[in-house]
Design a protein around this nucleic acid. Sequence first.
DNA 1: CGACCCCTTGAATTAGATCAAATAAAGTGG
DNA 2: CCACTTTATTTGATCTAATTCAAGGGGTCG
Lengths: 262, 262
Amino acid sequence: MNISNDTADLLRHGAFGNRLEPATLKRLDALARVREFRRSATIMAPGDVLPFVGHVQSGILRVEKLLSGGRQQIVGLLAPCDMFGHIHAARSGLAIEAVTDVALRCYDRPAFESLVDVSPDLAHAVLLSVLDELATAREWAVLLSGTTVAARFACYLLIQLRRSRLPPAVARMHGRPTVALPIGRSDLAHCLGTTVESISRTVQRFTRSGLIRSDTPLQFEILDLSGLIAAADCDGRDCPVIPAELQNNRGEPELEECLPAA
Amino acid sequence: MNISNDTADLLRHGAFGNRLEPATLKRLDALARVREFRRSATIMAPGDVLPFVGHVQSGILRVEKLLSGGRQQIVGLLAPCDMFGHIHAARSGLAIEAVTDVALRCYDRPAFESLVDVSPDLAHAVLLSVLDELATAREWAVLLSGTTVAARFACYLLIQLRRSRLPPAVARMHGRPTVALPIGRSDLAHCLGTTVESISRTVQRFTRSGLIRSDTPLQFEILDLSGLIAAADCDGRDCPVIPAELQNNRGEPELEECLPAA
DNA sequence: CGACCCCTTGAATTAGATCAAATAAAGTGG
DNA sequence: CCACTTTATTTGATCTAATTCAAGGGGTCG
């Protein structure tokens, strides 16, 4: 299969794009409208119910909880091709903000729901999509449950390795798997429920230990995958399952196959 | 509406029971088979894909991640009427165990999925059910993101107050809202990503502060709801939204209405 | 060049984990 | 029904890890 075609399709139709009938796809396209937001823009305030659903075309969103003291806790990141919005409206109390400049492919929610009602293939794709979101949310819960910052950071890297379906997030630098999300230390700290200082120290420690290499603050080359898995305090069978294609470096042969993904 | 009828219906048909056509309900009942497990039994091992889906009729399940060191991290609790199992199989790497003796109403998965395919009402109900699971998972992520044990414990109490749809979990003792899940300190500690000792100390501290009262280790009477909300470090608009019916004690008038729930 | 933002590093404090033990509750068998 | 075992909870003391407070580079942009 042609990678670049797949990529283009994912970008256009999101996670459920390539599972739809041509006819449904066409009607979906008719509904689509691309909206762009600048970095730090608020897409959804806490308590809002968006009038649309959609998926990310480019950029990174953060799903976060705003706490009383003006503090924020990130409970998820949305990368290109991830869905956002409440299919069947229910206030979540969460906020969505743009980490980078973003382009969102949006569908008017009532129209989208009507289309779902008459398109079993779309209904099925939406269900799969929500199930994927569910798995991701559980993964975040596991991540946040790590007791030490080191464990949470290692888990974060493993999740990003496994999860990202599109080039920019995970690539190979110097032939090694690399996590390169456009996420600054501040956001990273909020993701991991800690402070920028602790993040910084942990990154330095991992670097000194030879687990990772970080040319720029936004890039993490994975040097020792098995070491990272050990640091994440979870065995490879579980949450952070690494795609087979990434295992051929210092590959861990005992790692099982990854989920079929997309 | 008749509460006891509703309760019975929830117990029999789970979260999506009262949204189905009578015909669908009948076909669903034909598929149902109740399985019982004793306390501490493993319903699903990590890596398993259950041959059935279903919902809890009685008892409590814990959804957990098993870590390398034999440690476990609970990423969710399932109470009566909650769904479990992967509708469209995808290994989660999570385990499900019985906290108490449980009765599960199970449906053979292939048969259930076939029924979903031909029953739009069931498909819709399943989607809503999964969306509810998603909201719950995000709530857990928020819970686990709390920095201090006190914040996580307070958040846990608030979530249980809001979430439990059936009597045993939340009731009123001496006229006050009470969280009374059959969860021992050990499980509670795993839920909150901490140790039994820290739980114990936190409970004592909350008791001394007059936030809660605990006659038995399994019961927590809420004495000061607004204090708990403050301790959870999140304003009432968000995650822990308290049902209106529970607010008439030391009610917090500024709390908004809760979600329509079931 | 200075203002600003982001990342790193250092020192002090504190919360929580760990180790260890006492107390309380619940089941078991005589 | 009581002594006894087992399990659950509480309390104490120590030690480690992380937050907090504070300051020092290293960029970018007007």
